[in-house]
Design a protein around this nucleic acid. Structure first.
Lengths: 193, 193
DNA sequence: CTGACATATATCAGACCGATACAAACCGAG
DNA sequence: CTCGGTTTGTATCGGTCTGATATATGTCAG
């Protein structure tokens, strides 16, 4: 799924500037679904103009810098629906938090708990972003299906983190230092070949 | 989180070849956490050798091609724990499936249901991968915490998809064709500025 | 009136992805 | 017994994407 398709998708609902498209993916309705950065969006929008999949006009604003507002064309809509017809790749998660936590047994327990707290705060923010938007009102059925899927996943993550955090405070002696680990986990030879 | 750190993490538990590291992230214990491709892994392993964060030896196998087995060094462990000390970036999800589904109201309902079915099958496979591995036995506490988090998220996704799929079969008339859409959602002017 | 913050566009070096190529070995079907 | 398909395994490369940075306008608080 390339940046051009993602931008076309953003423009399907409404005309938007590059900055606004970015906000749809960061904190907006696409934030639980996909991620794309400025460095991909602006070049992609240029390509959309080249292919006449979008048009652009400058909008002056009061109290803000001007912005370039892009609108999708009929050709753009056709190209978008065509792009949607490819079989989707499986979901890809990139969680630095979980990756670090998966080595939490090598870290001081206090650090682990701090990470979990940060993780909780992160998902609380995401959930409140959703509720602040409040796009609940009269979504078409499939959009509602996707919307509620995201909310369900966030709420599940939060509930798990909150209820199981306590287990980590009660558990047996943690590794006190990250300079020394027990060598039990280190398999240096044998077992292979 | 760059490929070098991800490879070091993989080597923390066990020595491994590039191919084996890839499998840890595709279907293996890291599959719910992070994703990294061959095109990143092999160059990263070369860099690890250069920096003496890993050593390498060729292992002959019976009935299989030779493989190059990498082992993390003490300097590598130090570098890895150092890398873990940075504050983690927020989770990034990339779901082509959800992105396509979020435009499901523009698509024939049968296509949407087929997509949901594929999505369900996808997560069923992931869950059975986890249970096939069965690394449940005696994980250290924080690893268990992360492990069960992944299982919980997968099970929640499956339950949501299964129970709410039925709603999409009962609902009001779907868009019959993807060549025509109602123009109601298309805001071409006004409302901005 | 200074600094911090939000809005807004744009670029670019470096990192990464996905596809591809190559190769060795297995296995089932015809 | 060989043909094609699958698994294991290493490696590279073009095209794409990221994350940081630069630039600029405007608000608001202190």
């Amino acid at each position: 799924m390339d940046a051009k398709t993602l931008c076309l998708g953003a423009l399907m609902h409404n005309e938007a500037s590059g900055y606004e498209i970015r906000k749809l993916f960061e904190g907006g309705p696409f934030s639980a679904i996909y991620d794309v950065s400025f460095g991909s969006i602006y070049p992609a929008l240029t390509v959309l103009l080249d292919r006449e999949w979008a048009t652009c006009c400058v909008a002056e604003q009061n109290g803000r810098p001007d912005k370039k507002v892009y609108s999708i064309t009929q050709a753009g809509r056709a190209a978008f629906l065509e792009a949607l017809s490819t079989t989707p790749a499986p979901d890809k998660m990139r969680s630095e938090m979980l990756f670090i936590l998966s080595f939490g047994d090598h870290l001081p327990r206090a650090d682990v708990l701090a990470l979990v707290d940060r993780y909780i705060a992160d998902y609380e923010d995401r959930l409140s972003d959703i509720h602040d938007r409040d796009d609940d009102h009269e979504l078409p059925p499939v959009r509602r299906f996707v919307h509620n899927f995201g909310i369900t996943m966030y709420e599940t993550a939060l509930e798990y983190l909150r209820t199981h955090r306590t287990v980590l405070t009660e558990e047996t002696a943690p590794a006190q230092s990250n300079a020394r680990q027990s060598d039990e986990h280190v398999v240096t030879a044998g077992g292979v070949q």
